[in-house]
Design a protein around this nucleic acid. Structure first.
Length: 437
DNA sequence: TCTGGGGTCCTAGGACCC
DNA sequence: TCTGGGGTCCTAGGACCC
């Protein structure tokens, strides 16, 4: 446990809406609501003027329009938000190299890694005041709320305490007293489901949770959540501020204005979404092994289907083919409201990083290997119905794979479906064929 | 015209290996 | 014929966060 309030949390106020008001003076002082504008849109950010009408983040747009019909409704301009976000993060990194961004508008800063030595409450207040001024300056007038405390948890609680444009440093030693009357939902990781479970054992506040034993908490909410909850309820939080986090997955999803049941349309959409995922993977020099399709049906039930490749890929053709196959594994005949494609199990190496230094900013001429996994290959590396093979027989699809062998069914334009060949995984005949091509 | 999009982490069961 | 435990990987679903 830190003895000083050396963790700082910055939260930009109504960030998306504030950027819009900054860039369009006619919107200043007026309710502004940023989010999806379609029939199924939800609110991303409401300006403080809109919040007085009860409009909140994650609220359905239809409800927001009912509550505040005269607001300006805007589709998010992420490019603009990203520019301002980068400037703010740069300010934070100048303060301390240890900055952990949580999103475009939020970050933790570890002040023990900064050049400041006075981390008394007064000293941290001075740092925070200067920081707020600088943030406002580099963003052309945006404000942020800053909190500081002896842990991430307390810093975040602090920044929430006075919004907007707030500055709160929680004096070390006063944490439990401060937390005791607060709702358990103040604790990160406690959402509606966990709050409900705790309510059933008579716990509503952090203080009540604190008085419960760890064993009882674990019994109520499970192993991992229970242990961390028991700690956080006592204001014990040793989570470090982590500057670099590795991306674990990349996904794209789309909710349709109206449910779609037509299989051809769904296939087309899944192709388009898979291509966007592949684009982002290659753009970020990532590749992954597991492809997942997410299907939300008309009734909001959500299904995922996934498959794991023997080696990482960023090939749009491979991702698309697998996504299309996975889509067929779920009954979509009653209507689909959302389709998504994701790739996870990302390689911890960057594809082709041996080839490019790219100091000159030129296009790379050397394409990275699309298929890191080459032969020899085990039978289970072949994907029935997906892997295509060409040889003297013509074009063949892998028909079955497993138990050390691969069956391939060939067909030609003239003769149609032709012979079925069974090859052993170690068969040299299989070697020329690369799976997943 | 109920319920976004991008993520992270956890759980639980089954397969498989030693 | 019956019966181990531990570890890892994979899949599906769900909670949660901003």
């Amino acid at each position: 446990m830190r003895s000083e309030a050396s963790v700082l949390h910055l939260d930009l106020d109504a960030f998306y809406a504030a950027v819009e008001q900054r860039d369009k003076p006619s919107l200043r002082g007026k309710p502004v609501i940023v989010g999806g504008l379609g029939p199924r849109g939800v609110v991303s950010t409401a300006s403080y003027e809109a919040r007085t009408f009860g409009v909140r983040s994650a609220m359905r747009m239809a409800e927001a329009r009912a509550r505040c019909p005269h607001a300006a409704y805007l589709y998010p301009r992420f490019h603009a938000y990203r520019i301002s976000s980068r400037r703010v993060m740069a300010v934070l990194r100048a303060l301390s190299p240890l900055v952990e961004p949580l999103s475009l508008d939020e970050a933790f800063v570890d002040l023990t890694a900064s050049q400041h030595t006075d981390l008394s409450v007064k000293g941290v207040e001075r740092i925070a005041r200067d920081l707020k001024a600088e943030v406002t300056q580099v963003t052309g007038g945006l404000t942020g709320s800053v909190g500081a405390g002896t842990s991430k948890f307390m810093a975040k609680v602090a920044s929430d305490l006075r919004k907007p444009d707030g500055l709160v440093v929680i004096e070390p030693g006063t944490e439990r007293e401060l937390l005791a009357p607060m709702s358990v939902t103040t604790i990160p990781g406690v959402g509606p489901a966990t709050a409900d479970r705790l309510r059933r054992v008579g716990v509503h506040t952090v203080g009540e949770l604190d008085r419960l034993g760890e064993a009882e908490i674990v019994a109520a909410v499970g192993q991992a959540a229970g242990r961390s909850l028991a700690q956080l309820a006592r204001a014990q939080d040793d989570r470090p501020v982590v500057a670099e986090r590795e991306t674990k997955s990349v996904s794209v999803e789309d909710t349709f204005d109206h449910d779609i049941a037509d299989p051809t349309t769904l296939t087309l959409i899944v192709e388009r979404i898979a291509a966007r995922v592949a684009e982002r993977l290659t753009g970020e020099r990532l590749s992954g092994r597991t492809v997942t399709v997410k299907i939300r049906l008309f009734d909001f039930t959500t299904h995922t289907r996934s498959t794991t490749l023997p080696g990482p890929t960023d090939d749009g053709r491979v991702i698309t083919r697998l996504a299309k196959r996975l889509l067929t594994e779920v009954d979509t005949s009653a209507g689909v409201r959302l389709l998504g494609v994701g790739v996870s199990g990302l390689a911890d190496w960057v594809q082709g990083d041996l080839f490019e230094e790219a100091e000159d900013g030129e296009e790379r001429t050397e394409e990275p290997a699309k298929e890191p996994v080459e032969q020899p290959v085990a039978a289970h590396h072949w994907y029935p119905g997906n892997d295509v093979v060409h040889d003297t027989y013509g074009r063949g699809w892998v028909w079955g794979a497993g138990l050390g062998r691969v069956t391939i069914r060939f067909e030609t334009a003239e003769t149609g479906p032709g012979p079925v060949r069974t090859l052993h995984a170690a068969d040299p005949d299989l070697a020329p064929y690369s799976p997943l091509t």
